[in-house]
Amino acid sequence: MTAIVQVQSLSKRYMPENVLAVDDVSFEIQQGEIFSLLGPNGAGKTTTISVLSCLLSPTAGDAFVAGHSVVREPMAVKRAIGVVPQEIALYNVLSARENLVFWGRMYGMGGRELSRRVDEVLQQVGLADRAKSRVGTFSGGMKRRLNIAVGLLHKPQIVYMDEPTVGIDPQSRRNILDMVKELNREGMTVLYTTHYMEEAHELSHRVGIMDHGRLIALGTQKELTRLVGEHETLRLHLGEDQTPEPLAEALRGVPGVIRVSTADHEIVLIVPEAEDALPPVITKANELGVKVRSVDIQEPTLEAVFLHLTGRALRD
C-alpha cells in the first residue's frame, strides 16, 4: 500500500486568539483505506481537514496529498481531493443538476464528460429522480447526499468527509454510511471525521483519535482496543432525577474499577471483568440510594479507548 496522504508534524495556531487547534500531528493515509479522525467537538479534526484542503495554511509542519505539498502546491492538492464539508454547501435556488454542473465547472470539468458524471453521481447518491428539483425543497438527508455527490464529481483520488452525518435522521445516516462503504469498495480512499464512535467503528480501517489538537492514538481498531487491555465497559443508566457524581465518586474506591467517568445520567466504568464488578457496584448504589435503571456491558470499544486515554467520555 502507498500513502496518499502524509501529514508531518502539522500544527495550526489561530491568531490573534492564540489558540493551538492542531498540535504537532503526524499520520499517513494509505491508498484505498477509510481513515477516521475520531474526537469530540473542538478536538482539531476540522482544522486538520481544512489544512489538508488548503483552506488554512499550517503554522508549522507540512502535509503531502498525492505527493503534493499543501503549502507549496495547493492547486495540485485541490485537484486530487474531493471535499464534503460539515455544512451543506449547496445553492438552494438551483436544482440538484444545476448545483452539480456548477461545482463540476469549478473543478475544471465541462461538456459531455461533466454531463455524464452528473448523471452518474446523481444515480450513485439516489437522487436521479430529483435532478431537476430545487435543492431548497430537499430533506436534510437528501441535501447531505447531494453534498457528498459534489465531492465525488471529479473522481478525486481521496475524498474528505467532515462529519457528514451531523443533524440527520437515522435512516439517512444509514444511507450515507452504506454509501461511504460502497465508495470504498470501488477503490475510493476516504478521510472521515466524526465524533460518533459507532461510525468510526463501523467504517474505519484505521482510526486516529484526536483530543485538544493532539493525535493521542493511531491504529487499527484492534490495535487501539489493545491499549485498554482486555477490559470491559460497564455503563450504568440512572434515573432522570439522579445525579451521577456522588455514586461515581464512591465507585472510584471499589476494587477492580479502573476508570470512572460520568455523562448526563450515566456512569461509565472500565473494569477487568464486568460480571465480577457488577455486584459491588450495585451494592454501593443501594447504599447511596441511587436508582440504577439499567446496565450495559460492552466489549472494549473506541469509546473505552478514549476514556482510557483521556479520562473523559467521548461525548463530554
Binding site: 481544512s50 484542503s53 488548503c54 483552506l55 492547486m75 485541490k78 485537484r79 481531493i81 471535499v83 464539508p85 454547501a89 449547496l90 445553492y91 461545482w103 469549478m106 473543478y107 475544471g108 459534489v150
Partner: peptide
C-alpha cells in the same frame, strides 16, 4: 459555499 469554492482548484 465560499470555503467549498476555495477547496476547488
Amino acid at each position: 459555499t465560499l470555503p467549498r469554492l476555495l477547496t476547488t482548484p
